[in-house]
Design a binder for these strands. Structure first.
Length: 256
DNA sequence: ATGGCCTGCAACGCAGGA
């Protein structure tokens, strides 16, 4: 089982990149974030022509998540149970015996902003939702843009980012409270090159100079982490013409 | 040279991202 996550910063702008990447990588499931389109305008037909079925939870202009797969989804769940949110940020479905969620955590803007409070409240609601998912499903994989760099080694210049959104202690604690439900950061199950990131600002040649953050994660339940054989970040599409500012993250699992 | 962008929506700038 090969699963990936990619914040595409508009699925319609990035469609050719996504199709080319799917053709090459052939993941079983790809979780998308920031699709930025209503469900009516989601390019499901183009993806279907490349062998992929789509389910999506989108809105005009902002946010939006989707799951595209070579396997049929079942038990599709939109949003966070019991939490009213107009912003489309969570989509879950079952693929075989894998429960997979595509997640787009709020950015938070600045620590003194209302959006930051929304982010922390959203994380608290997500924690309850994931506890329920873990109780209900034996194998859970949460794939998405978490908008938190878990540790200083996930930041190109930790001193410059100290206290900034994506790196504040409260955000890291919120992420840790999710992980403490019994999840593993699959990227850290393996030896990784230093200074490996998943997002680079469009400005200032940040990608060329590898000034990035690792904020796109795949968190696996304990039993899934035991059958995880690899997790890597594919920097290549970030270097293509007119790229997303995020790179895809890919994890593979053995299936008996 | 420490700043340099990108998207959708609606409009000829804005909000929002990270």
């Amino acid at each position: 089982m090969k699963v990936a996550t990619w914040n595409v910063n508009s699925i319609n702008v990035r469609l050719e990149h996504v199709l080319a990447w799917l053709d090459r990588e052939q993941p079983d499931v790809l979780a998308l974030q920031e699709t930025k389109t209503r469900d009516d305008d989601f390019p499901a037909a183009a993806l279907h022509a490349h062998g992929y079925t789509s389910i999506m939870s989108g809105q005009a202009g902002y946010n939006g998540v989707a799951l595209v797969s070579r396997i049929a989804p079942s038990d599709v769940a939109h949003g966070i149970g019991g939490y009213v949110d107009e912003q489309k940020r969570v989509l879950g479905a079952t693929y075989g015996d894998f429960r997979i969620l595509s997640l787009y955590v709020p950015n938070g803007e600045r620590p003194d902003s209302d959006k930051y409070l929304y982010k922390l409240g959203w994380f608290a609601a997500l924690r309850n939702h994931l506890a329920s998912e873990l109780a209900r499903h034996p194998r859970v994989l949460i794939a998405g843009d978490f908008n938190v760099a878990p540790e200083d080694r996930d930041v190109y210049d930790p001193a410059a980012w100290e206290g900034h959104v994506l790196c504040t202690p409260a955000e890291r604690a919120a992420l840790a409270s999710i992980v403490e439900l019994g999840l593993r950061d699959t990227f850290r199950l393996f030896e990784q090159p230093p200074s490996t990131y998943s997002w680079w600002d469009y400005r200032a040649g940040f990608f060329r100079r590898n000034r990035g953050l690792r904020i796109d994660l795949m968190l696996a339940s304990g039993n899934l982490s035991q059958i995880c054989t690899s997790c890597r970040i594919d920097r290549e599409p970030r270097g293509w013409e007119r790229p997303s500012d995020h790179a895809p993250v890919v994890a593979e699992f053995t299936t008996a």
